[in-house]
Every structure is written in structure tokens, then in C-alpha cells.
Simulated assay, not measured.
Amino acid sequence: MSAMHRIAVVEDATSAEAADCLDRAVAGWQAAGRRVAGVLALRDDAPERTCSAGFLRDIGSGRDFSIHLDTSPSDTSCHLDAEGVTAACAALIGQIPASDVVVLSKFGKLESMGKGLFPAFEAALAAGRPVVTTISEKHRAEWEAFAPDATYLRGTALEGWLES
């Protein structure tokens, strides 16, 4: 896999569809004997929430990390728990070198600031591991600055991407 294709983005899907696509890809890769590291978003579709993800699940350990604050900080309406995302990232960093592929649920607000899962993106690329993710449209400019040569895939093309 060339450096240009080391990062794939699942696009043209709702957040729920993209999460389902990542879930299916992980299951398929694991069934084929691939070592998968990373985190998947678990939806918590409570009607009063602006964000649907409530947890990040570490693929390797199965551990769930809460990423939702019950009360948003006074300076924002965002309920994202940055500490939970940082803890999930720290837990998976050591798994990256032994993996065949790294799945990181999203490049969003925190990652656009170099926080959250951003260290895992950097570690995966430094280790030469392919990465698959989704991106927040609000942070597309920051994503494109970070990964200008990323491959953009529709969900059904993801399973064949790793083999290419």
C-alpha cells in the first residue's frame, strides 16, 4: 500500500452509517485474521443530545470510554468529554505497532486542535500502519491539511481498500 493510500476516509454517509461501516469492516478484518487496533464510536441516541456518540470502544480490549459529559461546560454547548477521548487514545497507542490496520472513529473537533485521537493518528502513520476514519465536515480543512493524500471511499469500498 503506497503512502498516498495509507489513510482512508469513509464518506457520503450519515454518522450512524459510517459507524456501522467501520463496525462491519473491523469484524471482517478480524475474521480474516487481521490485527485491528483503534476505537469505535458507540451511539447513544438520547433525544436531548446534540452528539450521538456516548462511548469509544477500544477494539483490542473491548473497554468502553465515556466521551459524553452530562452537562456541557459553560463556554460551549458541546457535551464531548475531551478527557474520555484522551484516555481512549492513551489506551490504544501501545497497540498500534503490532496492528495490521488502525481504525479511529473520527477526526473531529479535538483532533483538529491536535488533541483527542490525534496522537493515535500520528502514531499509526509513524509506524507505517494504514488508518481508516471518518471526518467531521466542520473540520474538513484541518483534516485536509493533515492528510492531503487521503483516499475517500464510500462504505462498501472499505473492505477492498485494505487489500489494495
Rank of each mutant, 00 (worst) to 15 (best):
V85R: 05
E163Q: 11
I135T: 08
W161Y: 00
K115D: 12
T151R: 07
D64P: 05
K106I: 02
A90W: 01
G38F: 08
L69E: 07
A127D: 05
E142F: 03
T133I: 06
F55T: 11
G128T: 10
S66L: 10
L104N: 07
T151V: 14
K138G: 09
G84R: 00
F55D: 13
C51Q: 15
L42A: 11
D149W: 12
H139L: 01
W143D: 02
A91M: 06
L117V: 04
A88E: 05
A46N: 14
A124E: 01
E111C: 02
R140Y: 06
D44C: 12
D81I: 07
Q30H: 06
V131F: 04
K109Y: 11
G155Q: 05
E159L: 13
V103T: 06
R49Y: 09
A98G: 13
K115C: 14
G160W: 02
G108T: 07
A37L: 09
S61F: 13
S112K: 01
L56K: 08
S61W: 14
A41P: 14
G94I: 06
A90F: 00
K109V: 07
A90P: 02
Q95S: 14
V102N: 02
W29D: 00
A87K: 11
P47E: 11
Q95L: 09
A120D: 00
P130E: 05
A91K: 08
F121P: 02
E163I: 05
G94T: 12
A147K: 07
E83C: 11
P148H: 05
S136P: 09
L56A: 10
S136D: 15
A87N: 07
G155A: 04
R63V: 15
A41Y: 07
Y152S: 11
G84V: 04
V103Q: 04
A41R: 10
A127R: 01
L80K: 09
A41G: 14
T50H: 15
V101K: 03
T71L: 12
G114E: 00
I93K: 02
R49K: 11
S99Q: 06
A147C: 09
Y152F: 13
A147I: 08
L117Q: 04
K106D: 02
P130S: 06
K106C: 05
P130T: 06
V102D: 00
V103H: 03
S72W: 06
A123W: 01
L162V: 15
L117I: 05
G94V: 11
I59E: 03
A124C: 02
A123F: 04
D75Y: 14
V132P: 01
H79P: 09
R57K: 13
D58W: 10
P119S: 03
T76Y: 00
T71P: 03
A87F: 00
P97T: 13
L162F: 13
A87W: 02
H68M: 11
G62W: 09
A126Y: 02
E83F: 09
R43Y: 11
D64Q: 15
V36Q: 06
A46W: 14
R57M: 14
E144M: 14
V85N: 00
